[in-house]
Amino acid sequence: MTIINILTVFLVLLGALFSLIAAIGLIRMPDLYTRMQSATKAGTLGVACTAAAAALHFKDTIASMDAIIVVVFFFLTAPVASHLIARASYTSGHRLWSQTIRDDYAESRTSGPDDRPDPEDLSL
C-alpha cells in the first residue's frame, strides 16, 4: 500500500465519476448541443483520469508511455471531433433548444454569402 497505489485508486474512481456525469448529461440534457457538451467533455476527462491511473500503476515504461499517449491523444482529438459534429449538425438544420437566449451565429449566416470551401472538393 504505497502512495502511488492510493493515487491510482483515487484517479480511477474520479474517472468513473466523470464518466457517470457524462452519461447522466447525455440522458438528461434537452438539446443536442448541451448534450454534446456534457457528454464529450466530462467523458474526455473521465477517460484521461483512468488512463493516467494506468500510467501510474504499471511499472514498465512502455505501458506507461502508451497510457500517456492515450491521455494526450484524447485531449487533442476530443475538441476537434465535437466541433466537427456540432458544426455539421448546425448546418444540417438541427434546431436549438427553446430556452436558448441568443443566437449570433444564425444572423451571421443569413447575411453574407457562404464562402466556405466546397464539400465536394476532397483535396485536403
Binding site: 464518466s19 457524462a22 447525455l26 443536442l32 457528454a39 467523458g43 459534429i85
Partner: peptide, 14 residues
C-alpha cells in the same frame, strides 16, 4: 446517436 456512439467509445477505452 453519433454523440452517443462517441461516448460509448470513450467508456470502452476507460
Amino acid at each position: 446517436r453519433v454523440v452517443a456512439v462517441d461516448l460509448i467509445g470513450f467508456l470502452a477505452v476507460g
